[in-house]
Design a binder for these strands. Structure first.
Lengths: 141, 141
DNA sequence: TATTAAATGTTAGCATACAAACGATAAAAC
DNA sequence: GTTTTATCGTTTGTATGCTAACATTTAATA
């Protein structure tokens, strides 16, 4: 059975609903996250914490950010003192990123905030719904 | 049972997955949509087609766009000749938006493209999965 | 009626997000 | 060993998306 193409319900379309869900998440994120981090800054930081050290391009790939996007994100994190940037002596193209030792203690706080934000975002769902939703959402990568 | 807060899997978090799903949708959108419309330009246009005439602020509310965002979107649509902007004689604050008569014929093409994009975006899912996913996604508004 | 409050649209600033083009460097192919 | 290709990072341009402050106009209230 084919859809009628003389009608279109914007409010039922997956793209529109994804935008709304993102808006919801971003608003909750902002209320909970420490240090006024943005979602992308947060993603870059926790992934860098996971990897330990990493080049800028690789961190971008691991967090699904364009080279131009990760560049700006790292620059703002650097200004906040949350990321160190050093040049790789073995590869003059590379910039090696790391979290300064003095800032290591914030990582557990980021994890805690992250869990809280995820729970808040999914709070309109029951436990089995959350599980189903995340499973299906992962298909859209 | 409480989550361990000494670990955090970015790739399993709803916010990150929503960003990835949005990226997927945007890429497909761009391949299919006519006139190089962006997702927000598209949303504003089809909602305006649905409403017939509308003030700028109301169109923003109906498409979940901030006043500053809808302002820029309408300005770009106006430059493309896809939206007319006229001042309301009964309310000097208002700008009345409409789709020019010469452009009315593009609306069915937008609907067709919109259906195609939604189908492509959800193509990794089975029919029942699509239904479940959209039902759950609507809870995150 | 005068004051207050609310709605509409504008502008500026910050932060993604992506495309495209570029120089420098390193790796692969010949 | 030289040429070709690929990778890394930078810069520019366009388009959201939000906050905040603002002027104008309209509606509500005292």
């Amino acid at each position: 059975m084919k859809e009628k193409e003389n009608s279109y319900m914007l409010d039922d379309q997956v793209g529109y609903l994804l935008r709304l869900a993102n808006q919801r998440h971003s608003a909750l994120f902002q209320e909970v996250v420490p240090l006024r981090l943005t979602p992308t800054q947060f993603a870059a930081l926790v992934k860098l914490a996971e990897l330990g050290e990493c080049s800028q391009n690789e961190l971008g790939r691991r967090t699904a950010m364009d080279v131009a996007t990760i560049k700006g994100v790292i620059e703002r994190l650097r200004k906040k003192g949350l990321v160190d940037v050093n040049s790789d002596p073995n590869d003059k193209r590379r910039a090696i990123l790391s979290i300064p030792k003095e800032q290591a203690k914030i990582v557990p706080k980021l994890f805690e905030a992250g869990h809280k934000i995820s729970n808040l975002t999914l709070s309109p769902m029951t436990a089995p719904e959350k599980k189903t939703f995340l499973r299906l959402l992962k298909k859209l990568r």
